[in-house]
């Protein structure tokens, strides 16, 4: 979040379980982070399961990145 405050585009990868925690932290730090939310958990996944997480989040990341670059 500090990176965004310094002008860096910094999407935060967070699982659904930790989303409320990250949102509360963001509120406390007065920032509105770019959030890339993936299903919980990430730890303990097999390679195939992890590839599924990546596949599921990639499109949103690319959209987020293109949008940020387009606005600069």
């Amino acid at each position: 979040m500090e990176l965004e405050r310094r002008g860096v585009v910094a999407p935060l990868v967070v699982t659904e379980t930790f989303l409320p925690l990250v949102q509360a932290q963001a509120q406390a730090r007065r920032v509105q982070p770019r959030l890339l939310v993936v299903p919980h958990p990430v730890g303990g996944l097999t390679g195939t399961e992890l590839a599924g997480r990546i596949e599921g989040a990639a499109a949103e990341l690319l959209r987020m990145a293109d949008e940020a670059r387009g606005q600069s």
């Binding site: 500090e2 990176l3 310094r6 002008g7 860096v8 585009v9 910094a10 999407p11 935060l12 990868v13 967070v14 699982t15 379980t17 930790f18 989303l19 925690l21 990250v22 890339l36 993936v38 919980h40 958990p41 990430v42 730890g43 990341l61 990145a65 940020a68």
Partner: peptide, 22 residues
Amino acid sequence: ADPDQIDWLSQRFKMVLVAVGD
């Protein structure tokens, strides 16, 4: 996060993908 790491990332990069909660 180490403040030096934050300094380095913010000076050197335009975009940083961060893992924070998993």
